[in-house]
Amino acid sequence: MMQDGTTGNRSLMLSETFEAPEVVARLIAANADTCRDLGARLRDRPPQFVVTCARGSSDSAATYAKYLFELHLNTIVSSVGPSVTSIYGARPRMRDALFIAISQSGKSPDLLTLATAARDDGALTVAIVNDTASPLAALCDIVLPVHAGAERSVAATKSYIASLAAVLQLGAHWSGDTALIDAVARLPDDLGDALACDWQGLVPLLTDARSLYVIGRGPGLAVAQEAALKLKETSGIHAEAMSAAEMKHGPQRIAGPDFPVVVFSQDDAALDSLAETGAELLARGVPVISAGPATIPGAVVLPTTAGVHPLVQPLTTIQSFYPMAETVSRARGNDPDRPPHLSKVTETR
C-alpha cells in the first residue's frame, strides 16, 4: 500500500484518512459564524474555567483543547471523568464554566449524564460532535458539528482530525488572534501537504515491534496519545503516550534497543526539551524516531510539513501518521477497519 493510497483494495481507514482535508474545509466554512459569535461571547464574559468531557480519541482532542486554551487564553482546563456523575453520582460545581463535550456519536450515557449535570448547574455547554441528531447535540447549548460524514472504519481518522480542527477554530476566534485565524483558513491545504509526507520508511521498524513510547509536549502530546491509541487498536502494539518530562520519572527505565521511542515535536517552547530527551535516549541505545522540527542527530527522521503554525503542526503530524499506521496494521496481518474486540460506537457508563 502506497502512502498516497492509490493502489487497489484500499481500506476504509485509509480512504477516510484521505478525506480529512475536505472534511476540515467543510467544517471551517460551516462553523465560521458560530465560532465567531461564540468567541465574541467568551471574550465578553470569560468563563471561570473550562471542563472537557470525552473518551478515547475524543479525549486526545480534549488534551489539545487543554493546551490551546491554557497557553493562549490563560484559562484553566480540567478533564472531568464522566464516571464521577454516571457511576458515583457526584455533581461537580460547574457554574460559570465552559463545558465542552467531544464525541463522534454523541450517544455514550456517561458523557450525556455529565453534560446534563453541567447544563443544570449553569455552565455554557458546547458539543463537538459528528452526529448532529444525537442526544448530546440536543442537550447542549451550542453545537459545533465536525462534518465528517459517515465514518465506517472502527479506527477514527477524519473525525479525530476534524475534532482538533473544531477546537482550533473555536480557540482562534475566542482569542481573536489573527495569525491563528489565518492558520485555520490554511489548514485544509496544510493537511493535504501532510498526506504527501511519506512515513512508510517507519513500517519495517514497527512491523515486528511489541512495545514503544510516543512522546510529545504541549499540544503535541494530544496527537502522541492518538498515535499510541491507533497503534494499539489497529496493530496490537503496546504503545504508550506520555510527556517527554514524564519519561524522566521512571518510564525511561524500560526503553531500550527493542523498545523504540517516537518523538512528536512542534516549533514552540518545548522544542529544545524534546530534542534533549531524544538525544539522551539515543545515547543509551534506544532507537528514536523523530517526527517534527526537533533536531536529534542519529534519529530516524520522518518528513513533516514546514512553514505551518505551531498549533497546526500536531494536526499535520497525525495526518501524516495515519497512512503509515494503516500499512503497519496490514503488514502485521490485521484488518485496520475491524480490530478484534472493538466496535465503532462505544457506549460507556
Rank of each mutant, 00 (worst) to 15 (best):
M1S: 15
M2T: 14
M2K: 15
G5A: 12
G5S: 12
T6F: 10
G8E: 13
S11D: 05
M13T: 12
S15G: 13
S15Q: 15
A20L: 05
V24M: 07
I28C: 12
R36S: 11
R43E: 06
R45M: 11
F49E: 01
F49C: 02
C53M: 04
G56P: 03
S60P: 00
T63P: 01
K66T: 05
I76H: 14
P82V: 00
S83R: 07
I87L: 10
A90K: 15
P92V: 03
R93W: 05
R95F: 00
R95I: 01
D96N: 15
F99Y: 14
S103A: 11
Q104K: 10
S108Q: 01
D110Y: 06
L111S: 04
L114N: 02
A115K: 01
A123E: 09
V126I: 07
V129W: 07
D131S: 07
A137P: 09
C140S: 12
V143Y: 04
V143D: 01
P145A: 00
V146S: 07
V146P: 03
H147L: 10
A148K: 06
E151D: 02
V154R: 04
A162C: 10
A165H: 03
L170W: 06
A172C: 12
D177Q: 06
T178R: 09
L180D: 04
I181N: 00
A183K: 00
V184D: 04
R186M: 08
P188L: 09
D189W: 08
D190T: 03
D190A: 14
A196P: 03
D198W: 13
D198M: 11
W199T: 06
G201K: 15
L202Q: 08
P204K: 07
L206A: 00
L206H: 05
S211E: 15
V214N: 06
R217M: 15
A228D: 04
K230R: 09
T234P: 02
I237H: 09
I237V: 15
H238T: 08
A245W: 09
M247W: 13
G250I: 09
D258S: 14
F264K: 00
L274H: 08
L282I: 13
A283L: 09
R284Y: 01
V286F: 11
S290F: 10
P293S: 06
V300A: 09
V300D: 05
G307L: 05
T317A: 11
I318L: 10
F321W: 15
R332Y: 11
N334M: 14
P336Q: 03
P336D: 00
D337E: 10
L342C: 04
K344H: 13
E347H: 06
E347L: 11
